[in-house]
Simulated assay, not measured.
Amino acid sequence: MPHFIVEYTDNIKDEANIAKLLEEIHQVLITRNTVFPIGGLRSRAIELKEYRVADGTEEDAFVHAVLKIAAGRSKEIKKEVCGALFEVMKEHFSSLMSQRYLALSMELIEFNEEGTYKQNNIHARFKIFEN
């Protein structure tokens, strides 16, 4: 963990540079490797082709992100990390937002380890950085 999932409307796909956004998000999370193990970091983007925004009369667009993390981090850490990630999103889309109607949002989902199943050998590669 964490997993960062971003949904975006297809009417901004040419200008949104989602690959760059994911790179920027990873940089924020990698710098917090004492909070989130690098080997557990995942991000993905989902382009939405069917959606409706507001009253449907404009070419409105939206980007919605979800940060999924395991339980156990302090309220302060969650607030700081989510604030930093949302700042990245706002900066990344600032130019596009100045040109068109665009809604940005992000939510945090914290889940319990019970009911979560995973296997990962990527963590071993980063063990040398922990000491």
Rank of each mutant, 00 (worst) to 15 (best):
A71T: 10
F111I: 05
F111P: 00
E113H: 01
I109Q: 14
K79A: 15
T116K: 02
G83T: 13
V53A: 03
G72Y: 07
E114G: 00
E110W: 00
N120M: 05
F62C: 08
K90A: 01
K49F: 07
L67Y: 09
G83D: 13
S43M: 05
E110D: 00
E80A: 14
A124K: 02
E58L: 14
K118Y: 04
M89Y: 07
R73Q: 06
E59G: 14
S94A: 15
L85N: 12
V66T: 15
E58R: 14
F62N: 14
K79I: 11
S74Q: 06
T116W: 11
E47A: 09
K49T: 13
H92N: 12
E110Y: 10
Y117H: 00
I122V: 02
A45D: 12
M97C: 10
F111N: 13
F86W: 09
A70I: 06
A45V: 07
Y117D: 01
D60E: 07
A65H: 07
K78H: 12
T116D: 02
A71M: 07
S95Q: 06
L108C: 07
H64E: 05
F111A: 10
Y101E: 13
F86G: 08
K68N: 08
F126N: 03
V66F: 05
K75C: 15
R100V: 04
Q119R: 08
K75F: 11
G115M: 00
A45H: 02
N121S: 04
A45G: 08
F111K: 05
L102R: 13
A61R: 06
I122T: 01
R100G: 08
M106K: 02
A84P: 10
E110S: 03
M89D: 09
L102H: 01
V88E: 11
E91S: 15
R73P: 14
